[in-house]
Design a protein around this nucleic acid. Structure first.
Lengths: 127, 127
DNA sequence: CGTCTATATTGACAAACATCGATCCAGAAG
DNA sequence: CTTCTGGATCGATGTTTGTCAATATAGACG
């Protein structure tokens, strides 16, 4: 019960692989475990919508009191999903007075986007 | 037991939203359900490595007989993971003789990459 | 036909997960 | 201090998931 949001496994130097991209070199075991944790956090409709609602603020912060009533789910459930997104390193929380505000950590989504991106099919550079 | 791989929910016209991107407009419920199914398929280290091993072939096909021995898992387990990737629309299978070959469907990963991509932070276009 | 080999499917089981109600904690405001 | 409110945590519960051994299917080869 010490630091559950102090972890930043996202930018970690997970592997000295040459490419954090699916289609260049096969993913190593460690890197795949780390990436799978991120993708799993996105593998729920509620969390995807939460992340989207927060990301729409473009760097700004969103109060939890604004997120919770947007779903047909109990307040503990939303809090649980926010915690998973936080533990995955996709969002960060900041308390201000009575309210808690969340913001997106773009490094995480950037990394996933880079993993999924194709490395250019540009000209006929075929072998 | 009719068509379990004939489905291509990936390119579906899931929603008439303006943007299939996280940070422009919040995701709708339907679209988030559909995207979450794709991300969930990537939310497992074994499946990520499988996809990566197939994608490394750059459009080519990979025999299952080449994938299975790369893991410390039973053959049915690998077959199960390949099935999930297939049902998610991320890969497709083709039987040739006794062997089955898998290839990546780039439209799926492209779509996920587009969802995660940031729409350019270019110059100081701040309000 | 029967046999062998490569995948897929089935059934079972433990672990992980999503959800809820109840409760707790942290600040604000009396 | 006490009370109120926003949010997190706890405990329980039903569902999903990852894994395996056993079995089934599909094609090749006698």
């Amino acid at each position: 019960m010490s630091n559950q949001e102090g972890r930043a496994p996202v930018l970690g130097d997970a592997s000295a692989d040459d490419c954090s991209c699916l289609s260049i070199a096969p993913l190593g075991e460690d890197e795949s475990v780390e990436l799978a944790r991120l993708f799993k956090a996105l593998g729920d409709p509620v969390r995807l919508r939460l992340l989207s609602m927060i990301a729409t603020r473009g760097g700004g912060e969103v109060c939890v009191c604004e997120l919770t009533p947007a779903f047909d789910l109990s307040q503990p459930t939303i809090s649980h999903h926010l915690k998973l997104l936080r533990e995955a390193g996709l969002i960060a929380a900041a308390r201000r007075g009575t309210w808690v505000y969340y913001r997106v950590l773009p490094e995480a989504t950037d990394r996933l986007a880079a993993v999924l991106a194709r490395p250019e099919v540009s000209e006929g550079g075929r072998k």
